[in-house]
Design a protein around this nucleic acid. Structure first.
Length: 466
RNA sequence: UGGGAGGUCGUCUAACGGUAGGACGGCGGACUCUGGAUCCGCUGGUGGAGGUUCGAGUCCUCCCCUCCCAGCCA
């Protein structure tokens, strides 16, 4: 079997979000050769900085491409904005075959037409007003200085059929499709056109993309057929949706990869979550890219949309944090956090992080509690601490003095002196020492906490104030 | 409105036409001492109505709901 060539073809008009990232990931997993192409045809919205961000994001996720740009430096091999000459040839071919025609309708006219059709219960389609202008009319409009778009003349009598690798056999009737724009009035190529052309020219054999493109596919197949170019197999994957059931977007909770990275998510967590949305893996472990690739099977891709659920992401994050080695975890922490942790307690602290933290921010909070005097108790927490009474803390101080290095002995001493046990023993202690009602094992905290600091915190409750 | 795709526990995901299972969450228990640790358990679902069948999540019909395309966005 020849190698499968897939691609990811983002438009650099914003940051990569979860939905995009999943398309990129599945494309990378689903191809033997993976290509990155930059579709920067929208001159208004495309920005070089987004190309740089996107490359960073993909790299961070661990994706690699065998063909494609390594930098935001425009390159005619992969930047559509640099491929005008290539497209020009194909426009000319289409015009020569009378399969495309100039359209002088203005955006306003088109908008009005669309609304009129829609409000009268008809599907909005291009009217075909410019479909049959004579050469003279076209020339006259050009002489008047009118700018024209180029429209593809859809063969109305044709039925386009193809086999979608995810959704099975498809067929669309040409009569349901209006003539569409393949070149904007400013000369820039439109998506339907250059996207399909480049897939053909770059030898892409499998186009894996969101199902929002499914109904666009017949248009692209028509273009390719008209130009006698090879067609890829298409695989339209279901979209990730938000809580409202609508495709993920900024407004229903989608976050950019950059944002997730900044929050401290591990790429493994993001990748596992994304790969498992709409795809079943036998293993429930955190898998590396190699294992994800080995287990990937396009036939196992689900056809229904999957909802993004943060609790799933956080589950994978939890596994990633637990699985991280000391070095990786240490550098995952904020610089300020690292500065607080004494070298002697580094390993213990990292263990605490593994079982108690999902994000560096939380680790930072624990570092402050354990290694600084910034402890602040809320009224609720202070009340829990105070509920044990002054005698409890006097007993605790004695017990701690007696067994400074042995938590079990300290506990025994404290129980004997105060008579407290279970919740009534641990909760006040935890509250007084950490300012929290939950967290790492008290044994570890007792071990790590500087003795003078420990005594100070216990002493806080030896004078019950008014 | 036309065309297209989809609908299994709250969420993700399994089930040659043959016991609807797993994971996450939630809840509960255990850990002769805390819990956000750990271990264990429980909860809960085939959108609806018919039909075919010994047997239907799966096949057929009708209905309902959701999403996508119908952009000089991609």
């Amino acid at each position: 079997m020849p190698p499968i060539k897939t691609r990811f073809a983002p438009s650099p008009t914003g940051l990569i979000h979860l939905g995009n990232a999943r398309t990129a990931l599945l494309s990378a997993l689903g191809g033997d050769v993976f290509v990155l192409r930059i579709e920067d045809t929208d001159l208004e919205r495309s920005r070089a900085e987004f190309v740089a961000e996107l490359i960073d994001d993909l790299r961070w996720l661990g994706l690699d491409w065998q063909e494609g740009p390594r930098s935001a430096e425009p390159d005619p091999r992969w930047y559509q904005s640099q491929r005008g000459e290539i497209y020009a040839n194909y426009y000319q071919l289409l015009e020569e075959k009378n399969l495309a025609y100039p359209c002088f309708c203005t955006p306003l006219e088109l908008e009005v037409s669309r609304r009129t059709q829609l409000s009268s219960g008809r599907p909005p389609r291009y009217s075909g007003r410019c479909a049959h202008l004579s050469a003279e009319e076209i020339q006259r409009k050009r002489d008047e200085g009118l700018a024209a778009t180029l429209r593809f003349r859809v063969p109305k009598d044709r039925v386009v059929e193809f086999e979608d690798e995810v959704r099975g056999p498809q067929h669309f009737a040409g009569e349901d499709i209006g003539d569409f724009i393949i070149r904007r009035a400013d000369g820039s190529p439109a998506f339907f056109f250059c996207n399909a052309i480049d897939d053909a020219l770059m030898g892409i054999t499998r186009v894996l993309r969101g199902e929002d493109h499914l109904a666009n596919t017949p248009r692209q197949l028509m273009i390719l057929a008209a130009l006698d170019l090879p067609t890829p197999r298409y695989a339209h994957i279901s979209l990730i949706v938000g809580d409202d059931g609508a495709p993920l977007s900024k407004r229903n909770g989608s976050r950019s990869i950059k944002q997730l990275r900044e929050e401290g998510y591990f790429p493994e967590a993001v990748v596992n979550m994304l790969a498992r949305l709409g795809h079943h893996y036998d293993s429930e472990e955190l898998l590396g890219l190699t294992a994800l690739r080995a287990g990937f099977d396009i036939r196992r891709l689900g056809r229904s949309p999957a909802r993004f659920d943060v609790s799933h992401l956080d589950h994978w994050q939890s596994l990633a944090v637990r699985g991280a080695n000391d070095d990786a975890l240490w550098h995952w922490l904020h610089t300020e956090t690292r500065a607080m942790v004494p070298a002697a307690h580094r390993a213990d602290f990292l263990d605490i992080v593994r079982s108690n933290c999902l994000f560096p921010k939380q680790a930072d909070a624990w570092a402050r509690i354990l290694f600084t005097d910034e402890l602040e108790l809320t009224a609720d927490i202070a009340a829990v601490a105070q509920s044990a009474g002054e005698a409890f803390y006097l007993a605790a101080i004695d017990a701690a003095t007696e067994s400074p290095d042995d938590f079990a002995a300290f506990l025994t001493g404290l129980k004997r002196r105060s008579g407290a046990k279970g919740k009534h023993l641990f909760l006040p202690l935890r509250a007084a020492l950490t300012g929290c009602l939950d967290g790492p094992e008290l044994a570890k905290i007792y071990q790590i906490l500087d003795k003078p600091r420990l005594h100070r915190r216990l002493a806080e409750f030896t004078y019950e104030s008014e």
